[in-house]
């Protein structure tokens, strides 16, 4: 495990912001950390990075306690937007960051290239657009090829093309074997690029599993004529809106089609029905807005 937490809790006075969270991020995976605003995502991430001390519970990141220099040098992070000096250029900001991480200016130029900011590297940070600032934050996180990337809303402020680039970048990082912990509000984005997700609501981790598991079993929708014969032929089904909903996997589809055809039934439509991550998310966090 790259990240593990045991009953990680943070309280401010009477308010419990993070409540006994048990998070497990595996090596090489892209882990989506989901939750409504104020659910405790950022506080949890801050605890993993040692910015905030837990009230109780423990965490290990890359086998080290949170905030230990040994671990931090192997982690790249972008938390709640990039924090840079407004009067410095993008490149100088990264040079400052590189000195703290014991990296070279050559590596700075390489990550600027990676996030497509080479042309604007000498412009002042304060003159950057929101998307450029975000990309500079990602560049800082990438400096030194960290084993673990913790990205809190990395697509904030990016246009659709920038968001697509970010998705590609995360996929590429995964391909290179890096582990990514990604917090995002964009469920479609998480569904597309994450292997597993954790859902936090009211400070509690309400689910942690693969995206597929979270969405539940596949249901096959079948429309056929004559319908009454089809209903008798296909087992494990129910009728919904004039169609059959068959509890079976996508791999079972050819077998079902064959059985229907052999029974002289015309198959008009057969396709998998699956709940989206968004539907699952709203069910899990119902009432929390």
């Amino acid at each position: 495990m790259i990240v593990t937490t045991e009953k990680l809790t943070k309280r401010y006075g009477d308010k419990t912001v993070v409540d006994a969270v048990e998070l497990n991020v595996r090596a090489g995976e892209v882990y989506g950390f989901l939750g409504p605003n104020g659910a405790g995502k950022t506080t949890t991430i801050r605890m993993l990075l040692g910015l905030v001390k837990p009230t109780s519970g423990t965490a290990r990141v890359l086998g080290e306690p949170p905030g230990s220099p040994k671990a931090l040098l192997r982690i790249g992070s972008l938390i709640e937007g990039p924090g840079f000096f407004p009067y410095l250029s993008g490149r100088d900001n990264l040079r400052v960051h590189a000195r703290r991480r014991d990296r070279t200016d050559i590596e700075v130029d390489a990550v600027l290239e990676q996030v497509d900011l080479s042309d604007a590297k000498n412009a002042k940070f304060k003159s950057y657009s929101l998307g450029m600032k975000q990309r500079l934050g990602v560049a800082a996180a990438l400096l030194g090829q960290p084993e673990l990337l913790i990205l809190d809303e990395p697509t904030n402020g990016l246009d659709p093309a920038g968001m697509a680039d970010m998705r590609d970048l995360v996929r590429e990082l995964k391909r290179q074997g890096q582990t990514v912990l990604l917090s995002s509000h964009l469920l479609g984005e998480v569904e597309e690029i994450c292997d597993r997700v954790g859902v936090i609501s009211n400070g509690r981790l309400v689910a942690e599993s693969s995206v597929q598991e979270l969405r539940g079993d596949t249901v096959l929708l079948v429309r056929a004529d004559p319908f009454d014969i089809a209903e008798r032929v296909v087992e494990n089904s129910s009728v919904v809106d004039g169609a059959l909903h068959v509890h079976a996997s996508e791999e079972d589809a050819p077998k079902i089609v064959r059985a229907l055809v052999e029974a002289d039934v015309d198959v008009r439509e057969i396709r998998p029905l699956r709940r989206t991550l968004e539907e699952v998310f709203f069910e899990m966090t119902a009432g929390v807005r």
Partner: peptide, 8 residues
């Protein structure tokens, strides 16, 4: 925040 997560 950037400084304290950089490593030192």
């Amino acid at each position: 925040k950037t400084t304290l997560t950089a490593g030192p």
